[in-house]
């Protein structure tokens, strides 16, 4: 029954960045050979440390940044061939910071109706009504239509961003850290809202988040990224109940549940995040891996199928891993 909405094949995005004075430029592979299919109605989460390429990947899905290599298809059509406006109608972003993502000089009403204007929607007479309906749907009092962003709370601003993203009834919504700038009481409201809207409007979400407790709560599938690659991808249940990749395990250990009988965990991720311009050889996680083996710094691990997804680590590779590891 599943239907693929987005399909990314071997997508790479390289930035040429200055390696220091007089040293010329070096390539930085922000996204490095990512393949991913997004099914209609699912909530796919992208998680990983700062700089691992989540936002860069999201920007490519939004058509805001062309891939250096690989293809992205929407409903079977290459994104490169889809009209910019048509694409904007299908995929919409919600960004992290509700403070800077709204134009302070525009009224709430004109912010929410802007996508209709951009799309040259043929019925301007209906815009206000539609915006007010959308405001109601996201829990904003329609009387705020004429107000300005600085008169709204953080949670209300994020609701404005959500209303703006949804006014054109997109199929896919990409949420880049949708709640990390918000207080917990507001965060829970927004998460509940996103869940309700998903059911009501049959939306597909791609959620980018640092907060694994949030991801576990709302995602149906999770892709763990490290240095531009997806190192493990599973349905939420298996990923959280039975993480395989040592990096995923370390990430899960660093989740601080509010349990006063526990201490701050030592995740053994001692070594710092590597320099992306000069990534480690073999498995790029090897300098920080608690279970590193001799050949890890030499041979790049392959994707090993696991459950409904995969893990990319020698521990699970029959041949290169010197036998399958007990987990």
């Amino acid at each position: 029954m599943s239907e693929t909405v987005i399909s990314a094949k071997d997508v790479t995005r390289t930035f040429m960045i200055s390696a220091g004075a007089f040293k010329g430029k070096k390539p930085l592979h922000a996204v490095n050979g990512v393949s991913l299919e997004v099914e209609r109605g699912e909530v796919l989460a992208l998680v990983g440390e700062s700089g691992c390429g989540k936002t860069t990947f999201a920007k490519m899905l939004l058509g805001l940044l062309p891939p250096t290599q690989g293809t992205i298809e929407f409903g079977g059509k290459p994104v490169a061939d889809v009209e910019r406006l048509t694409l904007a109608k299908m995929v919409q972003p919600i960004f992290q910071d509700p403070y800077s993502s709204l134009n302070p000089r525009k009224s709430i009403g004109s912010i929410i109706t802007l996508p209709l204007k951009v799309q040259n929607d043929p019925n301007p007479a209906t815009w206000r009504r539609r915006a007010e309906e959308m405001m109601e749907l996201v829990g904003l009092p329609p009387r705020l239509f004429e107000n300005f962003p600085n008169q709204l709370s953080g949670g209300q601003r994020q609701r404005v961003a959500i209303a703006r993203a949804l006014i054109n009834r997109p199929e896919v919504v990409i949420c880049d850290e949708p709640t990390s700038a918000l207080d917990v009481s507001v965060q829970s409201q927004i998460l509940n809202l996103l869940q309700d809207l998903r059911k009501e409007l049959n939306l597909t979400y791609i959620v980018i988040s640092h907060n694994l407790a949030v991801v576990e709560h709302i995602a149906t599938r999770v892709a763990v990224m490290y240095l531009g690659r997806i190192v493990e991808q599973k349905d939420t249940e298996s990923l959280f109940d039975n993480p395989e990749h040592p990096y995923t395990k370390a990430l899960l250990e660093s989740v601080l549940t509010p349990d006063p009988s526990l201490d701050v965990p030592d995740t053994h991720l001692g070594a710092a995040y590597p320099n992306p311009v000069d990534p480690p050889s073999g498995c790029t996680f090897n300098p920080r891996c608690a279970r590193v083996m001799d050949h890890c710094s030499v041979i790049e691990p392959k994707k090993i199928p696991s459950g409904k997804g995969f893990v990319q680590c020698h521990l699970y590779d029959e041949n290169e891993g010197r036998g399958r590891a007990a987990s």
């Binding site: 709370s153 917990v184 409201q189 509940n192 869940q195 576990e216 709560h217 709302i218 939420t236 549940t257």
Partner: peptide, 23 residues
């Protein structure tokens, strides 16, 4: 506050979280 945060292993996945309405 404690009711608002999803707690792994405790909060049921996908169920609505508690909330504190108002500002």
């Amino acid at each position: 506050l404690l009711d608002c945060i999803p707690i792994p292993g405790k909060t049921e996945r996908n169920k609505p979280l508690g909330s504190i309405p108002g500002i």
